[in-house]
Write a protein that binds this DNA or RNA. Sequence first.
DNA 1: CCAAAACTCGAGTGAGCACTCGAGTTTTCA
DNA 2: TGAAAACTCGAGTGCTCACTCGAGTTTTGG
Lengths: 220, 220
Amino acid sequence: MSTKDGPQASRRGPYAKSAERRRAILTAAHAVFAAHGYRGGSLQDVANHAGMSQTSLLHYFPSKSDLLLAVLNWRDSITGDGTAPPDPEESLADAVLRQARFNEDVPGVLELYTVLCGEAVTEGHPGRDYFTERFDRLRRSYARQLAQLAGEGRLRPGVDPDTAAASLIALWDGIQTQWLLAPGSVDMAGCLRAYLDLVLLPEEDQERASAGAPPLAPLG
Amino acid sequence: MSTKDGPQASRRGPYAKSAERRRAILTAAHAVFAAHGYRGGSLQDVANHAGMSQTSLLHYFPSKSDLLLAVLNWRDSITGDGTAPPDPEESLADAVLRQARFNEDVPGVLELYTVLCGEAVTEGHPGRDYFTERFDRLRRSYARQLAQLAGEGRLRPGVDPDTAAASLIALWDGIQTQWLLAPGSVDMAGCLRAYLDLVLLPEEDQERASAGAPPLAPLG
DNA sequence: CCAAAACTCGAGTGAGCACTCGAGTTTTCA
DNA sequence: TGAAAACTCGAGTGCTCACTCGAGTTTTGG
């Protein structure tokens, strides 16, 4: 009653090293799930990578599905969830291409995303809701940005922002899969740039775009 | 030749019902792998679906990875591997859209493909080579068809056939994933049609576009 | 300084896994 | 028709899995 901050005010804070331990577990789990998937990766493997016993791991994350969701949310908290561009001055195309090129050089990020996204459409997969919501969020975000570009006359006539948003995300995911299976045969950034070149009109034509012909051949 | 067709000519043919049983196993395995993935699906589950013991199943397919590869090749033998169009008179766009719409109505086909494709980028997955080769084959096939259209002037200027081939496949796969997670929010055929409308030029431009090519020449 | 919470982990627990073995039954084919 | 291959399956085999238990150690906060 003296210092009461709750009905059973008997809680203490975690140890000083706890945050670091959790981070080590998340790093290890990220690597393991990226390499073997959720079902194929074991808690023992994660614990070994993190340098602790499986029992200690379960002290921080009480179940395997909790660990998976923690890894997914951890990634989003670090790299962003793709919804909000870090620099509001950066164009949509530049942001997409910069992120695509960046991902090529950070091993494990694309593996984790691609592997888990495929697994997630499986019955009872703990990451299913995460990916469903992520796609929903991304589609809305890109559609909004594309609609704004359309208002500025920078979208090719006939292109629907909602369709283009879903298509851009789909193209991005699909090309990642192909790149992971044959890195030398696919140019991720090149494919994305080619698609954006088809959908977007160059900035300097914005005066003529609303009234006259775009630089590339118009649609029939 | 009558009694000797090999060094140890003592082989006999399988039972009459064997082909049917193999087909029942493949059907069951298709459903199980589509619902739970390769790692998440068990041989016991497949055997139960097929109405036999796990031991009998293993008589026909001596290991789980053998069963997976058999399922993948069985699908290709039924639906085609996407390389050869069934009707040489059908245009590339029509074939893509027809297949996309067909897949929407056959449950399990997209699940199997999407789930296994994601799993396959995992270390040591038995389906990895299959998907790598499949993508290679598909890219080459579409690139060839697009290059021919380019020769007929039916490709939008500036579009690279190789890039467009990889992009079309990527878009297709990616939109399938989104559709499986949120069927009501995504129009698969619509996205593919929109992309093809961006890449291909309408047919009536053929007279101005090229010299004297037939409208839909058979593949060389 | 000290009680109690936070942490650590060896040793299970029970379930499920792919796969094997051996013995019985059914079918083929000469 | 009969020998032998094709098939069937109950009963394992050894392994790994996620997760629990209980008991000890370390750290915190008053």
